[in-house]
Simulated assay, not measured.
Amino acid sequence: MRIACYNVEWFDRLFDEAGDLQRDNRWSGRRDVKRSEQAKALGYVFNKIDADAIMVIEAPDDHNGRSGTNALENFAKVYNLRATKALIGFTNTTQQEIALLYDPSKLNAQHDPVGVIGDVVPPFDGTYEIDLDIDNRADSVTFSKPPLELAIETANGTKLRMIGAHLKSKAPHGAHNAAEVMRFSIANRRKQLAQAVWLRGRVETHLSAGEHLMLLGDLNDGPGLDEYENLFGRSSVEIILGETGCPCLYDPHAARALARKIGGAPTTARFFLKNDNRFLQALLDYIMVSENLRDKAKAWRIWHPFDDPECWRDETLRNALLTASDHFPVTLDIDL
């Protein structure tokens, strides 16, 4: 079975109010990319990765009369995908949902959120109380994009828990000077770390119960990604993976990045920095598995247009990956 994670930049902009795909010459949400170009590229990429289930980050909007599930299922019909069924959990107001697009002949998925108000680890559509700035007062933290919690059963009868996540960006949006950049960056990292602690709490619940668990998505962080990480001692990725000696999750790309002080690390995203007139690459997207799934996991792959040899040699695929999104798909082939 192939599981994928794919952050599609402004997927919502490709659909009208009825959820129909708009393949015209109007601009998409991608820089210098028309809607027809992004849609065609995405159709090609989705068919190439040919996954049984794709955790779509920045999935189409699912509120105020719009249906993200209809939009994704319409997209699947247009491009004749095997994954024809879409599922969204708690919706949000960012126009960027978290959704699972999957092949119903290969697995069954149910939105199955855990926890109730008042729990130490509350539901993801609630509020988490944590002291962010060490002033002996609890701060209230929420998810702008609540993680998607799923109960999965494959056609072979394997049961597992799956969590799709999109953590808060650390980018200092709205900053006008160096002082604001620092202040906003630190505040955003604090909130992101709090979300990671909250998410880790749910992970520990599942691991303690001995359940099969897969956590995948855009964590907007990675080891050594920015200078503010040193202020807090560790990245959100390290928090979610777990400490040595505790039940841990595993992702080989994260493990490789954590092990390297100098030298290249895997990357899953590529952003254009207008002020510097260059591209920045980063490791942001992960598929983490519990220890009891590691022996079933066969191969992780980042479909990077330059770093993956097959993607590089296939000019059509390479160009499609660059046109489709500022993130690249991550896949895991696993026996389920």
Rank of each mutant, 00 (worst) to 15 (best):
M1F: 04
A4D: 04
C5N: 13
Y6A: 04
F11R: 00
R13N: 06
R13P: 04
L14I: 04
F15W: 04
E17C: 04
G19C: 06
L21E: 04
Q22D: 05
R23N: 05
D24L: 01
S28C: 01
G29W: 02
R30I: 03
R30P: 02
D32W: 03
Q38N: 00
Q38Y: 00
Q38G: 00
K40I: 00
A41H: 00
V45P: 03
V45Q: 02
K48C: 02
K48Y: 05
D50K: 03
A51S: 02
D52L: 00
D52H: 00
A53G: 05
I54V: 10
I54H: 03
M55G: 05
N64S: 15
S67N: 07
A71L: 08
E73A: 08
N74R: 13
A76C: 12
K77S: 13
K77M: 13
Y79K: 09
N80D: 13
T84Q: 08
T91P: 03
N92I: 03
Y102K: 02
S105Y: 01
P113M: 01
V114H: 07
V116Y: 09
T127V: 10
Y128D: 02
L132C: 12
D133I: 06
D135A: 02
R137V: 07
R137A: 08
S140K: 11
F143T: 01
S144K: 10
K145M: 11
P146T: 00
T154N: 13
N156I: 08
T158D: 15
T158M: 15
L160D: 08
R161P: 09
I163D: 03
I163F: 08
K168S: 14
P172R: 14
G174L: 15
N177K: 14
R183A: 15
R183T: 15
R183L: 15
A187P: 13
L193N: 12
L193P: 12
V197A: 09
W198P: 06
L199M: 08
G201K: 10
G201I: 11
R202N: 08
E204Y: 11
H206N: 01
S208I: 07
G210D: 11
L215H: 07
G217E: 12
L219K: 09
N220C: 14
N220V: 09
D221S: 07
D221A: 08
D221E: 11
P223V: 10
D226A: 12
E227N: 06
L231A: 09
S236I: 06
E243D: 11
C248N: 14
L249C: 14
H253K: 10
A254M: 12
R256Y: 14
A257R: 07
L273R: 14
L273N: 15
R278T: 09
R278S: 14
A282F: 13
L283C: 13
Y286L: 12
M288T: 06
E291Y: 09
L293T: 07
R294Q: 06
R294K: 10
A297N: 04
A297F: 05
K298L: 07
R301W: 00
I302K: 04
H304F: 08
P305S: 10
F306P: 05
P309S: 10
E310A: 10
E310H: 11
W312T: 11
R313N: 11
R313E: 13
T316I: 10
T316Y: 13
L317I: 04
L317D: 05
A324I: 02
H327W: 05
V330I: 06
T331E: 05
L332Y: 06
L332N: 04
D335S: 09
